[in-house]
C-alpha cells in the first residue's frame, strides 16, 4: 500500500471535484473493497475522498418503483421491509453476499464497483490484462474454475462478482450518476458495465469524478414474485459459482412476464432476454423452465475448468423459477 491523502467531502460537488482533479484519487464508502485492493497493491491511489458524510441515503418505495441512496449499507437495504416485501430478489441477493460484518460496512454504490475475484487479478505477481493492460491473461489456460463462460474474450474471462447486480439487472435497475459540474444522468445498469473485449481494464461507463448517487428499480409484478438463488462452495460467505435472479408474473398458470439474470457466469451481470421471452405466454411448469433455461447458455465459451457452469447455470435457473412459481 502506498501513502495517500484523505479528505472528507461535504457535498457531492466537492467529492466529484476532488476526484476529477486528481486522476489517482478514489471515492471511499465502506472501504471493504477498496482497502483490500490498495493493501494488495492492485490499486494505488494518491487521495481518498470519503463519501460517508454525504446524504446519499434513503430507501423509498413509490408506485413507480424503488429508490435506494448509494450510501445505504447492504445490511440495511437487505433487511428493509419495503425491499423484502416488494423486491425479494434484491433483499435475498444482498443477504447472500459476503458476511454480516462486511454488509454492515459496505455501501450499495461500492458493491456495484467491486472488482473481480479472479485469483490472477488479486495477486500482483501474476500477469493480468485487467490489472496491467497488455500483460496477458493466465486464467485462459490456468485456474479458471470460477471464471466466466459468457461475455469473455481472449483478453479476459473474469467474472463480475456482485450478487446485488444480478438482481438489479434482472429488474432493469437504473443508476443516477452525478459529475463535478453537478449534472446528473441516468444509465440502465445493463448498459453501465462493459464487456472486456480487448480492454478488460475498462469496466464501466463511469467518468472521472462521477459519483453514483442512487439506484432506481421500476415497480413490476415480476419484482414482487422474485427470487435469488446462489450456488457456492460453502453454505455462506463465498462468492457465487453460479447464481440466478428471477422474477415471474404468473396469472392463471400462464407466465405474463419474466425476468432472468445470471451471476458467476458472465464477465458482467448477465441478463438472459432469450430465456425471458421463451417463458412468457407459457405454462409455469418445470418443462417450460427447462426448455427456456437451455437458451441461457447457447453462446457459452467455457475453458477447461468451468465447463460445469453450462449445466449448473441451467439448473440454477430452473430451480429458482420453481421456487417463485411454487
Amino acid at each position: 500500500m502506498n501513502n495517500f491523502a484523505y479528505t472528507q467531502a461535504a457535498s457531492t460537488k466537492e467529492a466529484a471535484t476532488a476526484t476529477q482533479s486528481d486522476k489517482h484519487a478514489a471515492f471511499i464508502s465502506g472501504g471493504t473493497s477498496l482497502i483490500d485492493l490498495m493493501k494488495s497493491n492492485i490499486e494505488q491511489h494518491s487521495l481518498l475522498v470519503d463519501l460517508n458524510k454525504l446524504s446519499l441515503l434513503g430507501v423509498e418505495n413509490s408506485a413507480t418503483g424503488l429508490r435506494i441512496g448509494a450510501l445505504e449499507r447492504m445490511s440495511d437495504v437487505g433487511e428493509h421491509p419495503l425491499v423484502v416485501q416488494n423486491y425479494p430478489v434484491i433483499s435475498q441477493s444482498l443477504l447472500a453476499s459476503a458476511s454480516p460484518q462486511l454488509r454492515n460496512m459496505a455501501s450499495m454504490g461500492g458493491n456495484l464497483l467491486q472488482r473481480t475475484r479472479c485469483g490472477y487479478f488479486r495477486d500482483v505477481a501474476f500477469p493480468c490484462n485487467k490489472r496491467v493492460p497488455g500483460s496477458g491473461c493466465p486464467a485462459q489456460d490456468g485456474d479458471n474454475r470460477t471464471l466466466a463462460i459468457l461475455g469473455g474474450s481472449t483478453s479476459c474471462i473474469a467474472t463480475h462478482a456482485s450478487d446485488l447486480c444480478v438482481a438489479l439487472v434482472a429488474l432493469e435497475a437504473k443508476l443516477t450518476l452525478e459529475n463535478a459540474k453537478g449534472a446528473t444522468r441516468t444509465v440502465p445498469l445493463a448498459d453501465f458495465y462493459k464487456l472486456p473485449g480487448k480492454t478488460p481494464h475498462i469496466e464501466n461507463q463511469l467518468q472521472p469524478g462521477e459519483l453514483i448517487t442512487a439506484i432506481t428499480i421500476p415497480a413490476a409484478a415480476h419484482a414482487r414474485k422474485s427470487h435469488y438463488l446462489k450456488v457456492r462452495d460453502r453454505a455462506s460467505y463465498a462468492y457465487a459459482l453460479v447464481s440466478a435472479a428471477v422474477g415471474l408474473d404468473v396469472q392463471g398458470g400462464t407466465i405474463r412476464s419474466a425476468r432472468v439474470a445470471l451471476g458467476g457466469v458472465g464477465t458482467v451481470p448477465w441478463r438472459v432476454p432469450a430465456v425471458e421471452k421463451a417463458l412468457v405466454g407459457k405454462a409455469a411448469t418445470e418443462d417450460t423452465f427447462r426448455a427456456a433455461a437451455a437458451l441461457a447458455v447457447r453462446d457459452a465459451a467455457p475453458r477447461e475448468h468451468n465447463k460445469f457452469k453450462i449445466e449448473l447455470a441451467q439448473r440454477t435457473i430452473v430451480r429458482a423459477l420453481l421456487e417463485v412459481a411454487a
Binding site: 495477486d123 493466465p138 490456468g142 485456474d143 470460477t146 462452495d233 460453502r234 455462506s236
Partner: peptide
C-alpha cells in the same frame, strides 16, 4: 497454477474453510 507454480487463492476469501 500449472504454468507459474504459484497459488491463485492464497487468502481466506477463496480458500474455503467451513463456516
Amino acid at each position: 497454477d500449472p504454468h507459474y507454480s504459484r497459488y491463485t487463492n492464497a487468502d481466506l476469501a477463496s480458500y474455503h474453510v467451513p463456516v
